[in-house]
């Protein structure tokens, strides 16, 4: 049961959240202009590092807001969370 600091509500138990995978994967400006390869890459291919990375969560049982987090997948340690309108922090 991770403890996740929602930027709006403060620290809450993992069961209040839903996971959203890798952060900062923007929907393409013009999907029609992408090749099948590029579209496939957008749809299915993601980073999957062992260590700190940026990921998304949504506080479904709280404020229902999406936000981003830096979390270390090797230790599960949540390093920081930040709002969608905040610049992504450097990875440690």
């Amino acid at each position: 049961m991770l403890q996740i600091p929602c930027p709006w509500c403060g620290p809450r138990d993992e069961v209040e959240f839903r996971y959203g995978g890798q952060a900062h994967v923007a929907y393409p400006e013009d999907p029609a202009a992408l090749s099948d390869d590029d579209w496939g890459a957008f749809l299915f291919f993601r980073d999957n590092p062992k260590g700190p990375w940026r990921e998304r969560w949504v506080h479904v049982a709280g404020c229902r807001r999406w936000f981003n987090a830096v979390r270390d997948t090797a230790t599960h340690r949540l390093i920081t969370t930040y709002r969608l309108d905040e610049p992504p922090p450097e990875l440690p």
């Binding site: 049961m1 991770l2 993992e14 839903r18 996971y19 995978g21 999957n48 062992k50 990375w53 990921e55 979390r71 997948t73 090797a74 230790t75 599960h76």
Partner: peptide
């Protein structure tokens, strides 16, 4: 639900 390499879950 989350990505993790720590060989433990919740």
């Amino acid at each position: 639900a989350y990505n993790g390499y720590a060989q433990r879950g919740s």
